[in-house]
Computed example of a mutant assay.
Amino acid sequence: MRAAAAQFAADYAANPRRRTINEERAKDDATGGLILGFLWLGVAAKTWWGGEAGLALLPASYGLHEATYFALHRWVPSFRGLYVRFLREILFIPAMLHTLATLITLSVWSHSSILTLHGGSSLRLLLVLAVANGSLAHSMYYPFCGFLLPYVAAALPLTLLLPLASSRLLCRRLLEDASSTQAVTNLQSTLNIAHAAVAGPFGWSDFPSTGADAALPSCIQVNVYLIGLLGCALPLLLARPLPEQQQQPRQQRRRQPAEQQTDGAGALHETLRRQHLLPRLALASAIAWSIGAAAAFTFGG
């Protein structure tokens, strides 16, 4: 088993499609990382001026991390070659964990937590939770980086553990604001109704409807649902599969009709059509909602 896994990893590392993607995305990684770095430095400055110097170190360190990477990419030519061949996938995981730790720590412990910005609106609360728990970051970072499916499937368990483990803490922080209780209850009820036909008894949760403690299971269910849908299912569905033609003999590929070779837009449309993205996303949503219900019953007491 270990030998097979090692062989698979070696084959993946030698995959020409992986090398091509890494070469194409290396410059985008540096530029996008630098932009994110400046944004995080802005967050660090705001946190520092708010009297939370200790918390400001997390976003500041992320900004310095991205600035260092940009400098290496720009002025150390040998680094780019190593990055494309070996380091891109390796460095992504600690960078992602750094982002998640910063988001969750600031959301839970900062006086200016993003969790206070829902304004009593269930829809806004959905977005606030998706940002705070890192699920939105997952849904953006993985597709933007263009990783192949085997890597995404292997990396997600490592980067999802922290958001899942922080669900109860995040929800307790959210429910410290009395105005969030009704918004959480309304959001959970709406999502319950939306998933009732598909998830059935596995997703239908009958939680108490009053009080902050009673709203805790509802919050955990919604939070875990977002992590499962945006943080796990969407990156997997949007990940690039291993090229099918890589397994075909070269002569067979040459004999394929020219009309089967589509342009970029046509290829994307064909990929989405073949993968049946929307039905799969709907099924993933029902599964994530059911998992959220199980988590709520287990950890919401």
Results as ranks from 00 to 15, higher is better:
Thr116Cys: 01
Phe70Cys: 11
Thr99Glu: 10
Leu87Gly: 00
Gly33Thr: 09
Ser113Met: 09
Asp29Cys: 08
Tyr83Phe: 14
His65Asp: 09
Ala56Tyr: 00
Gly32Pro: 09
Trp109Gly: 13
Ala60Asp: 11
Ser110Tyr: 01
Ser122Gly: 02
Ala137Cys: 13
Phe38His: 08
His111Arg: 15
Ala101Asp: 13
Ile93Phe: 14
Trp49Cys: 12
Phe147Tyr: 14
His111Ser: 14
Trp48Tyr: 13
Leu117Gln: 08
Ala45Thr: 03
Ser107Tyr: 00
Ile35Ser: 06
Phe92Ser: 13
Phe92Pro: 10
Trp75Phe: 08
Leu64Lys: 01
Ser110Glu: 05
Pro150Gly: 02
Gly32Val: 11
Leu87Phe: 15
His73Lys: 08
Ala56Cys: 02
Cys145Thr: 10
Pro77Lys: 09
Ser110Trp: 00
Leu72Trp: 05
Ala153Thr: 09
Phe86Tyr: 15
Ser122Gln: 04
Gly63Tyr: 01
Ser139Leu: 04
Val84Pro: 00
Leu97Tyr: 10
Ala30Phe: 09
Leu127Cys: 05
Leu123Gly: 12
Phe70Lys: 12
Ser113Lys: 08
Pro143Gln: 04
Ala67Glu: 08
Ala132Gln: 09
Ala71Pro: 00
Arg85Trp: 05
Ala67Arg: 00
Leu64Trp: 00
Thr116Val: 02
Gly119Arg: 06
Leu72Asp: 01
Arg80Leu: 11
Arg85Asn: 06
Leu117Asn: 01
Ala44Pro: 05
Gly146Thr: 15
Phe86His: 15
Ala101His: 11
Leu97Pro: 03
His65Thr: 12
